Simulated scan of single mutants.
Amino acid sequence: MELILKYFKDLSEEQTNQLTQLKDLYKEWNDKINVISRKDIDSLYLHHVLHSLAIAKVIQFTPGSNVLDVGTGGGFPGIPLAILFPETNFHLVDSIGKKIKVVTEVANALGLKNVKAEHTRVQQVKTKYDFIVSRAVTAFPAFVNMVKKNCKSENKNALPNGIIYIKGGDFEAEIKPYGKKISLYNCTDFFTEDFFETKKVVHMTL
């Protein structure tokens, strides 16, 4: 948890408490339903929470914004972002029901009123959102094709509406066709840990 406080110094007492609770909640639920690899649970704050919050270094969501988290898994990046932005609405979807059960239980335990978790495929989601976020669930062009129908046209945030995607490794070829619609942010610009060396946040205007 010290890791989060190192980079996010202006958290309220409630936000600090909620983020602190994540370790025990995920440990408890992971013992019942494996949503995070066993070795990863000990690095929860580095590999999952702080990684998710790289998005918060790129954008501060305007209150009332609506965000869709696709392939949320155990609730990343949606749950940490929902804690940080209590006035933004987050819709977390995953095609695996047991993962959504964990997300629902964690959100309820934390008292997050701005989270809706749903067992569905994004292809079935008809609602439109300001942003669609995800942690590299598939190749980027396939992701764009799946979610472009879900983006609102009118902007109310500092960044234009679109996709905010957390990705690691080399994927220049995947994003090249989109040209100037793409902005890339290196996670090493925000965080000093070695884990972030190849990690990036991709914003694509839709």
Rank of each mutant, 00 (worst) to 15 (best):
A54P: 11
F61M: 09
A56C: 07
E14R: 08
D69S: 01
I59Q: 04
Q18H: 05
W29V: 06
I36Q: 09
H47S: 08
K23N: 14
N66E: 15
Y45I: 12
G73D: 03
N17L: 10
G64Y: 08
I36K: 10
D42W: 12
G71T: 00
Q60H: 14
T72A: 01
D69T: 00
E14W: 01
Q18P: 07
G71D: 02
F76Y: 08
K23H: 08
V49H: 02
I36D: 08
P63N: 11
A54S: 15
T72R: 07
I36C: 09
K23R: 15
V70Q: 00
L50Q: 13
D31G: 07
L50R: 05
L22V: 11
S52A: 10
N34C: 12
N34R: 14
K23F: 14
D31K: 15
Y45L: 10
S52F: 03
Y45K: 07
S12V: 01
V58H: 09
H48F: 04
Q21N: 08
V67N: 07
H48W: 01
T72D: 01
Q15S: 04
V35G: 06
N17T: 14
L44G: 12
S43M: 11
W29I: 06
L53H: 05
L19H: 03
I41Q: 10
E13Y: 04
I59R: 05
G64L: 13
N17G: 10
D24K: 10
Q60L: 07
K57F: 12
S43N: 15
T20W: 04
L68E: 02
E28I: 09
L44N: 13
S37Y: 12
T72L: 04
N66K: 14
D24N: 13
V67E: 07
E28P: 02
V49F: 01
D31N: 15
F76K: 02
Q15K: 02
A56K: 05
H51T: 05
L53F: 04
A56V: 04
G74P: 11
I41F: 10
G71Y: 00
W29Q: 03
N66S: 15
F61N: 03
F76C: 04
V35H: 08
G75S: 08
D69Q: 01
Y45S: 15
D69M: 02
Q15L: 02
P77R: 04
L44M: 06
T72P: 00
N66M: 11
G64H: 10
H51G: 01
W29N: 05
H47N: 14
K27R: 12
I33V: 15
L22F: 05
S37K: 13
Q60I: 09
W29H: 07
I33A: 00
A56T: 05
Q18E: 02
G64R: 08
L25N: 09
L19T: 06
L25S: 06
V49D: 05
L44C: 09
G73Q: 09
G73W: 03
G75N: 04
N17S: 12
R38Q: 15
K39N: 14
G64F: 07
K39G: 12
H51C: 06
Q18V: 04
P77W: 02
A54M: 12
L68G: 02
L53G: 04
H51N: 12
V70C: 00
